[in-house]
Every structure is written in C-alpha cells, then in structure tokens.
C-alpha cells in the first residue's frame, strides 16, 4: 500500500464512525422532519432520548433535530398550570423538560426550525405571530386571561405589545432553563428584570466540545485533501485550540476575540518551536505547524464570535476585516512550505 492511500484509509477510518452515526440519527427523524419525543407525554427519558441529546450537543452548531411544535401538557397539567414558551430545538426542549419534569406545566413549542431561542428570535422566527398562531390552533385564546412565560432571550423577536393586543399576558421569564424550577416554585410569576446573560466558565465549557467537533471536521477535510502531508499534528493542534480557546477565553490577553486567538496561536507556535528544536524534529513540519497554529487559532477565535452571547456586530466586522486576511495569508504560506521546503 502506498503512503498516500494508507493516509486515505486512516482518514476514512476516522470519518466512518461519525458518518454512520450521522446517517443513523438522521433516520430517526420522523413526522414531518420532527423527532418523536416521548418525554413530553410521559415525562420519562429513554436511553435513546439521552443519546439524541448528547448527539445534539456534540453537533450543537448543526440543527440535527427539532421537536414537533404545539402545546404539551407535562404530568397531565390542566389549564391552570403555568404555560412556558420555548423553541423547538431538541436540546433546548430536552434540557428544559429535564428541569421541570416533575411539575405540572404546559409547554408551548414554537416552530423555530430547530434553532435555539436567541438565534431564532434574532432572525424573526420566534415571534409574537408564531406564538399567537399556536395559541389559536390550540384554542388557548378562547378563554380569558391567557398568561404565558417567555424566555427572556426571545424578546429580540417577540413584540410583547402584539401579544397583549391578542389578549395574552406575557411574562418575561428566566434566561436559563436552570432557573425555571426556582422561578415556578416561587409561586408568583413576575417579570425577571434581573436576569442577564452570563458567559461564565460553564457556558464556555458547554460550547468547547461542539467547537472541537466542528473544527475536527474541517481539519479532517484538510487532512484528506493534503493526503495527510502534515501528519496528525494539524489535527491535534486544531482540536487542542478549539477545546481550550472557549475555556480560557477571559484569561487570554487581548481585548476582543481575534487578538486573543492570535496571542494563543503564537504561544502554541512558540511551544511547538521549542519542542521541535529540542527534539530535533523535521524543519519542514516544524515550519508548517508554526504557521498553521496562529492561522487556525485566529480562525477559531473569529468563528467563536457566533457562539458567544457577547459579540457585537460592529466589533466583529472590524475584527474580521483586520484578522481574516491574516488567516488567509498564513494558510496560503502553507502551500509553498508543503511544495518547496
């Protein structure tokens, strides 16, 4: 077997299990593209539902599952039970139901195309119109004084005054599902003025693994295209950076996203250089890795702007204009390194 074909075999071995998983879980989609969710009627989670939730988390940035929109009654909740509104992203619904599993609540799931609350609200899919439509379909507007608790992050898409005009009394609920049980148990459903987005270690760690999965796919593609020229080190560098950047984010020196990425990339390059010189590693591969690390780190950092809830369009635009050319130039420099050195 030639060297290049053996590398292809290696790449296929890496891709194959993921491809099988992907196809298998796609097959589970039923009922107009929505997955069948047992826990919304039985409030009991099956092994497959946990597995699907884990898979949804691993592929967080790919909408793989959505829940059928509509009104659900947990634990045979009647019309006096609190009504919570959420998106139809599978993982969001799963995490919310896990939190409220033993309570009598009604759950209104809005068709957001499987997108999370904030993103779908920002792009107009999680809207007052969508909520009113489901309310009408489910006959909720026939009675008087319909109250519903909205996730606070839906308010960039939901115009409260439109709900009020339709006879609905909207209540601004917590930002996070974790706060919902305490909110419900308080007995008095009030607007959560004090709830704000927190981008703490837990939230960042939650995004680290999906970021690594996303970039693993990219770098594997690169690996296959370049016939594994640079060996396994670009794969390891990419996964290492994708895992560590979100977690270390506030502690990396820099003001914004890309400059922190550059700092991290340069630090990794210096470590590679030091290790390579000490170990007497091949010059060609060392140069490749030293250029590859900062380019990939900046790319991951820029990509992370979409994951974080703290990025601002104007700042990201400036950063993209300043740093994306750096990424492109560094990646272009890898070509002569591969060919000539």
């Amino acid at each position: 077997m030639t060297g290049s074909s053996s590398l292809y075999v290696q790449a296929i071995i890496l891709y194959l299990p993921l491809a099988v998983f992907w196809i298998y879980f796609r097959q589970l989609r039923k009922h107009d593209g929505h997955v069948t969710v047992g826990f919304l009627s039985e409030t009991r989670f099956s092994f497959m539902e946990y597995l699907r939730a884990m898979f949804s988390w691993c592929f967080l940035f790919f909408r793989i599952y959505s829940v059928r929109p509509g009104l659900y009654r947990l634990n045979q909740a009647d019309d006096s039970a609190p009504l919570l509104v959420t998106c139809n992203n599978y993982l969001t619904v799963f995490l919310l139901v896990r939190r409220v599993a033993y309570r009598k609540v009604r759950l209104m799931i809005v068709d957001t195309g499987g997108i999370n609350v904030w993103c779908s609200a920002g792009k107009g899919r999680f809207s007052a119109e969508a909520i009113i439509e489901i309310s009408q379909q489910e006959g909720l507007l026939e009675g008087k004084g319909l109250e519903m608790v909205l996730p606070k992050l839906a308010l960039s898409g939901v115009r409260l005054i439109d709900l009020k005009k339709a006879g609905i009394r909207p209540i601004i609920g917590p930002v996070y599902a974790a706060d919902v049980p305490e909110y419900l148990d308080s007995g008095d459903l009030k607007n959560r003025k004090e709830d704000h987005v927190v981008f703490g270690l837990r939230a960042r760690a939650f995004t680290a693994f999906p970021t690594a999965v996303q970039f693993f796919y990219y770098v594997l593609g690169f690996y296959v295209i370049t016939l594994g020229y640079a060996g396994i080190s670009p794969v390891l560098i990419t996964i290492g950076l994708a895992l560590s950047y979100p977690i270390l984010f506030p502690w990396i020196p820099g003001r914004q996203f890309a400059d922190r990425g550059l700092v991290m990339g340069i630090a990794v390059s210096l470590i590679i250089l030091a290790v390579s010189l000490t170990a007497g590693r091949d010059l060609q591969r060392t140069v490749f890795d030293v250029l590859f690390a900062p380019a990939t780190a900046v790319f991951i950092a820029l990509s992370f702007t979409g994951v974080s809830p703290i990025s601002n369009y104007d700042n990201v635009r400036k950063e993209t204009a300043r740093f994306l050319p750096v990424v492109v130039v560094l990646y272009i420099l890898l070509i002569p390194v591969m060919i000539f050195l």
Partner: peptide, 23 residues
C-alpha cells in the same frame, strides 16, 4: 445585527441575503 463571523462573511462579504433560517 448579529455579531458572528458567518453572518459577516455571508451578508457583508458575499452579499448573500439571510433568509432567517439561522444566524
């Protein structure tokens, strides 16, 4: 506006119109 690299590449650089399917 969405402070996201993908949005900026699609809407600003490639001038693709967002259809509201995601960010």
């Amino acid at each position: 506006q969405t402070g996201c690299l993908v949005t900026i590449i699609k809407e600003d650089i490639l001038k693709m119109k967002c259809d509201g399917q995601s960010c």
